[in-house]
Design a protein around this nucleic acid. Structure first.
Lengths: 154, 154
DNA sequence: ACACAACTGAAAACGGTTTTCACTTTCAGA
DNA sequence: TCTGAAAGTGAAAACCGTTTTCAGTTGTGT
């Protein structure tokens, strides 16, 4: 999910900071996640690259990377603290409640929803976080019925 | 924000539960808050009415009241767990990133977004979590520019 | 009055996050 | 190359919000 390591290294260097092996591992872990991830999920994923990585460092790195704008902090549906690549602002994800598989879809009508919210509330909306969940085609087929709803939609 | 105590008492009674003095205090504390409130904030506020109230009870009551739909759980700006009175049904919330005030708006075109997601992914969507954030009119006015986006629409 | 279930608060347990601390790595300058 | 300073690190402890446990209280129906 396209996070340019060189660019980030540059941003860090401009502050006298470095893109260490550990930080790189954290960055990659978030970049490759198909949805927002919690610190512990990052920890687990990043450890495969960098086994001696500590959880402390993950927290510190997530903090740092979101500070320089490389990552975005979001409120996940379950966990409060979750992160996702900053560039990915505009795809949304659908999580299968049965198998956990994640699919992406490119945003379409969110603009209309946001406009409606602006009209109703007077707020100037700057960000939105949308997470859908349901049943993926595979799990839907396995449980028997399912597909009906998916097909009928539009 | 108008939470009808009698109605809530009725809903509870239908389940064999009671609207006790403590629960009433919690309910009032949330109802009178101008933005979403954390459990501890509720605790502090409710204690003025009911000094012997325990924090445990606050947690339990918030859980219970949001379960029966009297309160709504939202992701506050600082704390993950925050509550607000549940207004008219089916809405989403907009959190002000500056002051934390929460506004509701009734869902409108989410159906279209969901339909699009169904088409693109083949998932059978059953739930969605949407959280908007931005700047409320008050904070927008305070910071100078802002208002344009919010006011323009209507 | 009695029995039973709902309800409560204090304290302990729990779990995620932050801080502390001793140590390592990296880099600039002599 | 050596040296010193600052960045960076992991383990363990501390911290803090939330949940669970437990013994006791309150309210309701009989």
């Amino acid at each position: 999910m396209a996070l340019d390591a060189d660019e980030i290294a540059g941003t860090l260097a401009a502050r006298g900071l470095r893109l260490t092996r550990q930080r790189h591992a954290v960055l990659d872990a978030v970049a490759e996640a198909s949805s927002s991830v919690s610190p512990v999920q990052v920890f687990d994923a990043a450890r495969e690259r960098c086994p001696e990585l500590g959880l402390t460092t993950v927290y510190r790195t997530l903090e740092l990377l979101s500070e320089i704008g490389a990552l975005r902090r979001v409120h996940g549906p379950d966990h409060c603290e979750a992160f996702m690549p900053a560039g990915a602002a505009h795809g949304h994800t659908v999580v299968c409640s049965a198998c956990g598989r994640v699919a992406e879809f490119t945003e379409c009508d969110m603009g209309a929803v946001v406009d409606a919210a602006v009209l109703q509330t007077g707020y100037r909306i700057t960000e939105h976080f949308l997470q859908l969940s349901g049943e993926c085609p595979t799990c839907g087929a396995r449980t028997g019925q399912a597909r009906g709803a998916a097909g009928g939609g539009a």
